[in-house]
């Protein structure tokens, strides 16, 4: 809560120093009086606490404000809502694809550590992480569309046109999930309790599944809610490539156009999502890791 208030104050303070020319489309032709009136209407002349207070007050009435320049005089809620749904749809599907695939990749690499599959997986990860994704996104779009005999752009209602953007979104996630899981699993295998389990006579397959995999997933669980929520913000590049009307790039766009009320609303949403993601991640951790708990229990040491 405090975090959000601080973010709001910083945000409003920064927007106060924006050049005033940006607030008007016909600045040069306006009289000084008209400019003053316009700025007062926008509220940017008011002291910081008044601006923040007003914003928060409206917020509690479920009002995110009204866009001034992005789409004139349209409630921000109505602008964002459909965009969120689009981005969320792509994000969630790509996550549903990439999470299991990434995990499978990680497991295969860890099991085959030092072997050919590990090396291939590593090559994939390095390529995906190191090559600017603009390059392979374009390749996917151009050759993928040929291969699938479908449009290069996304069309509502044509499921086949979703494949390429989702593939583009999933590739980097698969590589990072794979990389982390492999790393965590290799870490776990070197731990003493795995040796003890071996000494106890637990068969290898059981050790891998019950001890190594289970324990390696724990640190990943924390990241999942966060990355799921952040898919709402969309991907600038993928969405513009396939002309998907999502959230990607919206924030940059409205900052450039100095649509302050849109900036406020979006920043608030992203901040809340970020915090919520962390919180949900922590809650998820307590479910899978008995060592972590929110309530303070009396230890028996």
């Amino acid at each position: 809560m405090i975090t959000i208030v601080i973010i709001l104050f910083v945000l409003f303070a920064m927007l106060k120093v924006m050049p005033i020319e940006g607030y008007f489309s016909n600045f040069d032709k306006l009289s000084q009086a008209a400019i003053d009136r316009g700025l007062r209407e926008l509220g940017v002349r008011d002291p910081l606490y008044v601006q923040v207070g007003r914003f928060v007050k409206n917020l509690f009435q479920g009002d995110l404000g009204i866009s001034h320049r992005y789409m004139e005089n349209k409630p921000i809620k109505d602008i964002i809502a459909p965009k969120v749904m689009v981005s969320l749809r792509f994000g969630v599907i790509s996550m549903l694809v990439s999470l299991p695939l990434g995990m499978i990749l990680g497991v295969i690499m860890a099991l085959n550590k030092g072997g050919i599959f590990d090396k291939l997986g590593n090559a994939y990860i390095v390529v995906i992480q190191a090559v600017p994704n603009a390059i392979y996104f374009l390749l996917i779009q151009v050759y993928g569309a040929q291969l699938l005999h479908c449009s290069m752009l996304w069309r509502e209602g044509q499921a086949i046109t979703m494949i390429l953007p989702i593939l583009s979104l999933a590739l980097p996630s698969i590589s990072s999930y794979g990389m982390w899981l492999r790393r965590y699993m290799v870490d776990e295998t070197n731990k003493d309790y795995i040796k003890l389990a071996r000494a106890k006579g637990v068969p290898n397959a059981t050790i891998w599944f019950r001890h190594v995999f289970r324990n390696s997933v724990v640190p990943m669980v924390q990241l999942i809610p966060g990355s799921l929520l952040m898919t709402i913000s969309g991907s600038i590049y993928v969405e513009s490539l396939y002309s998907i009307p999502g959230m990607g790039g919206l924030l940059v766009d409205v900052i450039k156009r100095q649509d302050n009320s849109m900036v406020h609303a979006l920043t608030l949403i992203f901040a809340v999502l970020g915090i919520l993601g962390l919180l949900l991640g922590d809650i998820a951790m307590t479910l899978v890791d008995p060592r972590i708990s929110f309530s303070k229990k009396g230890g028996s040491r």
């Binding site: 003493d192 003890l196 000494a199 106890k200 006579g201 068969p203 001890h211 008995p290």
Partner: peptide, 25 residues
């Protein structure tokens, strides 16, 4: 498979560091 007849059942081992030799979860 061969070792599974021996490990634990016939010959067991206690490791050095008890802090890390148990599965924390």
């Amino acid at each position: 498979k061969e070792w599974s007849k021996i490990r634990g059942k016939e010959i067991a081992m206690v490791m050095q560091d008890p802090m890390t030799s148990l599965n924390p979860l």
